[in-house]
């Protein structure tokens, strides 16, 4: 009973905070909708560029490693850039959100990074140029515990290795 109550209160607090922060930053976001499609992050908040116009990361749905249309578009741009810079090697860093056990999430991060690797390879990028590392839920980019934060954390980030 008390646990339930605490849970409800916390929920109210969290949603209040979300509303407040939304007002403070003058965003017109009333839900997470404009930055998420389904539960895949589509915003640009944490995204960096590998090169001008080439986003460095792709995002995933909960417990999934399937690439969305937008992710495939990002990876096509990355492949094009890597073909032009043929001496460049990359590391794909796979991540999961915090809602999973540590060991399973390590495996899930590895699976996500490999999904990105496989797609880059279909555009002619040699496997020898790509290494993969999974951080599981150990390196979130957003420390929050809400659907938007989790969606930013489910990612595979392409990092230059040399």
């Amino acid at each position: 009973m008390t646990l339930n109550k605490i849970f409800k209160n916390t929920l109210i607090l969290i949603s209040a905070c979300l509303l407040l922060s939304a007002c403070a930053t003058q965003k017109t976001v009333t839900t997470d909708g404009s930055q998420m499609q389904g539960d895949v992050y589509t915003g640009t908040d944490t995204v960096k560029e590998l090169a001008p116009g080439v986003p460095d990361r792709v995002f995933f749905a909960t417990n999934e490693s399937i690439l969305t249309t937008a992710s495939r578009e990002t990876l096509r741009k990355q492949a094009e850039y890597l073909r032009k810079n043929s001496s460049m090697n990359i590391v794909l860093e796979g991540h999961a959100d915090e809602r999973g056990t540590r060991e399973y999430n390590l495996a899930l991060g590895e699976r996500r990074a490999n999904a990105a690797k496989d797609y880059l390879m279909t555009y002619g990028i040699s496997a020898s140029r790509i290494s993969v590392i999974s951080y599981g839920k150990e390196r979130p980019v957003d420390s929050g515990s809400n659907t938007l934060a989790w969606s930013k954390n489910r990612r595979s980030v392409t990092v230059k290795a040399n």
Binding site: T10, L13, I14, C17, S21, S143, G144, S145, N146
Partner: peptide, 10 residues
């Protein structure tokens, strides 16, 4: 456990 009201500190 979360340590602040925003549910962020932990």
């Amino acid at each position: 456990t979360k340590t602040d009201d925003k549910g962020e500190g932990f």
